[in-house]
Simulated scan of single mutants.
Amino acid sequence: MKTEGNFLPAEWVRQSGVQLTWPDCETDWCDIIDEVVPVYEQMAREILKREKLLLVCRDRSLLPQFLQAENERLLIHQMPLNDTWARDHGALTVIEKGQPTLLNFRFNGWGMKFAACHDNQITPTLFANGAFRKGVPMLDFSYFTFEGGAIESNNEGVLLTTSECLLSKNRNEHLSKTDVEFFLKKVFDAQKVLWLDHGFLEGDDTDSHIDTLARFCSEKTIAYVKCDDKTDSHYQALQKMEEQLQTLTDQHDKPFQLVPLPFPEAIYDEDGQRLPATYANFLIVNGAVLLPVYGVPQDNEAVRIMQTLFPDREIVPINSVPLIKQHGSIHCISMQFPEGVI
């Protein structure tokens, strides 16, 4: 495991806690608030069993009773917010000479698709209010638009991302691919940046965040979304993504072990729009993997595959149909922090 220099720790390293930003009726969840709050409650309970929960909310009086009680693992911070996608407005953490350092980027609502004026201030406000352990520094990169869902790390100096997202308009359009790659290598001390040029999910607002398509599960293993139905609108793009994954190599120029994840059968909203269901949007926590499930036949196979990928962790299925109604899932609503941060 990489221990020197700066690097972006993988999600499976020991964590100090996870951030959630709580939904309320002033967020886009308002119309389905009774559906989505139980999902957040289950997430909160599972996190608190294992590590600290950094909870951002507009008003703590709106929280359920079990989050009102005293709990040494629970840290609540009130502040204005637009929405609840902590993966993308939360701080990223790098390890610098063995110690954690927070990174603050600009969040602009996935290329100015949605208002983010309050969400963009959540990380600086948490830092100013002492939410993180004393002595943990934060570096400001607010001149660079970036989201946590756009990057994956294998913990050994290899980053995985998508060109559709990082090269999209209204993020860092003044920068070339070479510029963006140089920035990522410098900030994360990465040896390699691997770009996927194919793959998408209908209903996705993020411009193909990597965490909806392909995820590192170990230094040498990538789990990825695979579609076998030739009549499905995703088939060709995901086939091309698979072919590209087969060409990628790690920091030692060795190919990765590739593990296909099942493709959930199509789920639609009340207007007939397809929703972006994916099993790739799981969250790794201490001792467990929180896995989105959708009440479809592929759920059981997804659980089985996850157990083979993480044999020493409990696989916890979480009904994520309410989350995909707002076009995200479990990983999108959470941000983990390695040991020493919270």
Rank of each mutant, 00 (worst) to 15 (best):
V36G: 03
D197Q: 09
I33S: 02
F146R: 00
E301A: 15
L261G: 05
S208V: 02
I122H: 11
L248Y: 06
Q15K: 13
H118S: 14
V193P: 04
H174M: 08
F200P: 10
E339P: 04
V187W: 01
L102C: 10
P100I: 10
K220P: 00
D250E: 08
L213H: 01
M241T: 03
H89I: 07
D204W: 01
V341Q: 08
L213R: 00
F183K: 00
E339M: 12
E4G: 00
W12K: 08
E243M: 12
P23I: 02
A115Q: 10
L63Q: 06
T206H: 03
F337C: 07
E339N: 11
M138T: 07
Q15F: 02
R171L: 04
C227I: 08
L309C: 13
E202L: 12
H118W: 15
S142V: 02
G130L: 07
E219F: 02
T27I: 11
V321C: 09
S142E: 11
F141W: 09
A214Y: 04
T101R: 14
P264Y: 01
G199E: 05
P262F: 06
K230F: 03
F114C: 01
P9E: 10
F146S: 00
T278D: 09
S320Y: 09
G90K: 07
V13I: 15
T247W: 00
V316E: 06
E173Y: 02
R106M: 06
D312G: 02
P297S: 09
T125C: 14
G340K: 10
F337K: 12
L126G: 07
F144T: 01
F114G: 02
W29M: 08
E70H: 14
Q68R: 14
V56M: 10
Q246S: 12
G287N: 08
E46Y: 14
A128N: 14
D271N: 13
L166C: 03
N108I: 05
K186T: 07
A190Q: 01
L126P: 06
G287S: 09
N108G: 09
E219T: 11
F105V: 01
L248F: 12
I284F: 03
M1G: 14
D88F: 07
Q239Y: 07
G130K: 05
Q99G: 00
Y40C: 12
A302F: 07
H89F: 06
E242R: 13
E202S: 11
L159K: 04
K220A: 12
G149R: 06
S142M: 07
V303T: 05
S320D: 11
L201W: 03
W110E: 01
Q121N: 15
N155Y: 02
